[in-house]
């Protein structure tokens, strides 16, 4: 009867059955809120982001926050050991997380983390990639599409320039990185479904 919200940001992934679903959700919300605020601060630091309309800033963050967090925290997933280290410091094996009901989403997260980790990005490259991720988020609801597209183009150019100047002999890295964008969209959808399922039927 335990209530499970096995997200790496959750300090209490397995809650006793005696706690109400609302209590479990509110406790989890307190865990992910600081991370969401950090993504908003990160967005504000992206050159050009604050020139977008207020509405479009919110729309991009709504669809891109989880994707940025997935990139930021992909180092919590250890594909060699097949473990995930939660922000509460506890490390969980793949098998124990599967037992907690994180099967297909977990596999997709491991797969993504392994692919991204294998590219060996430097911290500044990773930050620029996260900016591209955020501005490449779902366009539904965006009003000033041209302004978002222009910002995206500039960020992609900056990322390509940074990567190709550092690794002039590796022409495959940049396209490999862009291929991770659709992976993140798929993960975002799976993740939303999982959380909404908890909200509907914990």
């Amino acid at each position: 009867g335990a209530k499970v919200l096995a997200c790496p940001l959750n300090s209490c992934p397995v809650a006793p059955a005696s706690r109400s679903s609302q209590e479990v959700w509110e406790s989890f919300s307190q865990c992910f809120t600081p991370a969401v605020k950090e993504v908003v601060e990160f967005a504000k630091s992206i050159p050009g982001f604050q020139t977008l309309s207020q509405h479009d800033q919110v729309m991009l963050l709504k669809s891109g926050t989880f994707q940025v967090l997935m990139v930021r925290f992909c180092s919590l997933f250890d594909p060699k050991e097949r473990t995930v280290t939660f922000l509460n410091g506890q490390t969980y094996s793949l098998a124990s997380l599967r037992a907690l009901g994180m099967s297909s989403l977990l596999d997709a997260m491991f797969d993504f983390s392994e692919k991204l980790g294998s590219l060996g990005l430097e911290p500044d490259e990773m930050a620029l990639f996260m900016a591209v991720v955020l501005v490449s988020a779902d366009r539904s609801g965006i009003v000033e599409v041209g302004a978002v597209e222009l910002l995206q183009e500039n960020l992609i150019k900056a990322l390509r320039s940074l990567i190709t100047s550092r690794r002039p002999d590796d022409s495959t890295l940049f396209p490999k990185l862009l291929l991770r964008l659709p992976d993140l969209r798929t993960l975002n959808n799976q993740h939303s479904d999982k959380l909404l399922a908890f909200r509907i039927d914990p």
């Binding site: 908003v40 207020q54 800033q57």
Partner: peptide, 27 residues
């Protein structure tokens, strides 16, 4: 549940976190 970010409370957190910045732009 067509808007997961709203239903999960994400939109509210984002709007509040952006608020200071947004108020500055409105002025």
């Amino acid at each position: 549940f067509s808007d997961p970010a709203s239903n999960l409370g994400l939109e509210d957190i984002i709007r509040k976190a952006l608020m200071g910045n947004l108020e500055e732009r409105q002025e």
